[in-house]
């Protein structure tokens, strides 16, 4: 494992924990898209079905379990415990517009036409666009709490670091996977606008608000 891969995993973990803590400490999930969180729970579930059939390392297995557990806990906090604070009115992105094309594409473009492989491919495609309901919510309300911005920055950085990891693996091991690579590029591109706002505003101590 190279440093980019490790930092990517760490960044992903930090994002997930920031979100859980934010909801738990403020007793509120306002400004958070429950729909994006449902998509992430689906992503982890369909990607990590090999959890018990394909052992790689203790690190790998524990991270998978942590990611899955945290994503379900987040969905529970939003739709269960702190439901009263959930922003139903603004979180209106139609997730079937992401789920259906990802599923169709996974059937058409994959490495192997087998159930586990199609589900893995589906999770890669879905993850690349799963943040859209959250970005849509931020654009609809025109602002994001600073802690939500940190969450989005850590989550966006994770795939960017994975891209560097894949670049590294390509040159050192001749390893590449076009499905993961192209999806990873799309996923990172979707955050570009946000990265710009984060660096130009949030890091200078201002709240992230969109120009009217």
């Amino acid at each position: 494992m190279n440093v980019f891969r490790f930092l990517g995993d760490l960044s992903h973990l930090v994002a997930i924990v920031i979100l859980l803590l934010k909801i738990w400490k403020t007793r509120s999930c306002s400004g958070i898209s429950g729909r994006s969180q449902i998509l992430f729970a689906i992503v982890f579930t369909t990607r990590y079905l090999d959890l018990f059939s394909n052992f790689i390392s203790v690190y790998n297995t524990s991270m998978k379990i942590v990611y899955i557990t945290c994503s379900y806990a987040t969905v529970y906090l939003i739709y269960g415990k702190f439901k009263a604070t959930y922003d139903f009115n603004h979180d209106t992105f139609r997730i079937e517009f992401l789920l259906v094309p990802s599923a169709i594409l996974a059937f058409l473009v994959n490495h192997d036409f087998s159930p586990l492989e199609i589900l893995w491919t589906f999770s890669i495609y879905l993850e690349s666009v799963a943040i859209l309901p959250q970005l849509f919510l931020v654009s609809k309300t025109g602002e994001a709490e600073t802690i939500t911005s940190h969450y989005l920055f850590a989550l966006g950085s994770y795939r960017l670091l994975y891209l560097l990891n894949w670049l590294w693996r390509y040159f050192s091991q001749g390893f590449y996977d076009l499905i993961a690579l192209l999806s990873g590029i799309l996923q990172t591109v979707l955050y570009c606008d946000f990265f710009y706002l984060y660096i130009s505003k949030v890091l200078k101590g201002k709240k992230l608000s969109l120009p009217a």
Partner: peptide, 10 residues
Amino acid sequence: DNLINPKDEL
């Protein structure tokens, strides 16, 4: 064949 899935990744 180097076109393997990065299944060792997360």
